Simulated scan of single mutants.
Amino acid sequence: MNSLNAYLDLFRQIDSTDLSQAHSLVSNDYRFQDPFNDFRGSEKLIRLLEQTRKDVRSPRFEILSIWESPTEENRVVKWRFSGLAPVIGKMDFEGFSEISLDPSGRISAHVDYWDSGVYFYGRLPLLRLPMAWIRKRLSL
């Protein structure tokens, strides 16, 4: 579990941590996927975290809970992200990550699940009204 905690610290302490630690925490075939990204490798993970540092003022990831699988190869992490982004403004939402570990304990995969329609696209000025209309049309 130590490598998982160190890995999660990359996110929890995004403003202050040494992101180059990612190289030793993730496997050679590491894969990251979220609503905007699907990539492999520690270099791209570092670039993603650096971009978050650059684009979001006061980014904060709070780990709310961690569930382990019986085989200890997978974890599900519930988290909350907050910060201030250009155009969108204040962001504050929860999501889940499915994190897989390889036999050596390094992170081999990280898949994020969160609602980009509500928390991102629906807050962009040009899409806000069309997204609200679509939600209204689809609701009961």
Rank of each mutant, 00 (worst) to 15 (best):
E43I: 04
E68P: 03
K44C: 05
F36L: 10
L49T: 01
I63R: 03
P70R: 08
F61M: 03
L49G: 06
E62M: 10
P59Y: 02
Y30S: 02
K44R: 09
F32V: 02
D38Q: 05
I63E: 02
Y30G: 04
E62C: 05
S58P: 11
F36M: 12
E50V: 02
G41T: 03
D55Q: 05
Y30V: 01
L49D: 04
Q51M: 10
W67H: 12
E62Y: 08
D38I: 02
P35G: 07
L64V: 08
D55I: 08
L45I: 03
E50M: 08
K44N: 15
V56D: 06
I46E: 08
R31Q: 15
F32S: 04
R31M: 11
D38G: 07
F61I: 03
P35D: 03
K44Y: 14
Q51T: 14
F36T: 09
E50T: 06
E68D: 15
S58A: 14
Y30N: 05
I66H: 04
S42I: 00
R57E: 11
L45C: 09
W67E: 15
P70A: 13
Q33H: 10
R57V: 08
I46W: 12
R40A: 02
S42E: 03
S58K: 10
I63G: 00
Q33G: 11
D34F: 03
I66V: 13
P35H: 07
R60M: 07
K54Q: 14
T52L: 06
L45G: 10
K54I: 11
W67I: 15
Y30P: 05
F39G: 01
E62I: 01
D34Y: 01
I66C: 09
R57N: 14
L49M: 04
R40G: 07
S65M: 09
P70S: 13
R53S: 08
L64A: 10
R53W: 03
L64W: 03
L64K: 09
E43N: 13
E68Q: 13
V56T: 09
W67M: 14
L45R: 01
E62T: 06
R53D: 01
R47Q: 15
I63K: 05
F39N: 01
N37P: 06
G41H: 01
S58T: 10
E68V: 14
L48R: 05
E50H: 09
D38L: 00
I46M: 07
Q33T: 14
S42C: 04
L48V: 00
V56Q: 04
P70Q: 13
Y30W: 11
R40M: 10
R47D: 15
F36E: 09
R31G: 10
E43F: 09
P35C: 02
G41A: 03
L48K: 00
I66T: 11
D34K: 05
D55V: 09
Q51W: 06
P35F: 04
N37G: 11
E50I: 01
N37V: 11
W67P: 09
P35M: 04
E68A: 15
L64H: 07
R60E: 10
K54T: 15
T52I: 11
P59L: 02
I46N: 01
R57D: 15
R57Q: 14
Y30H: 08
T52Q: 13
D55P: 12
P70L: 11
R47K: 13
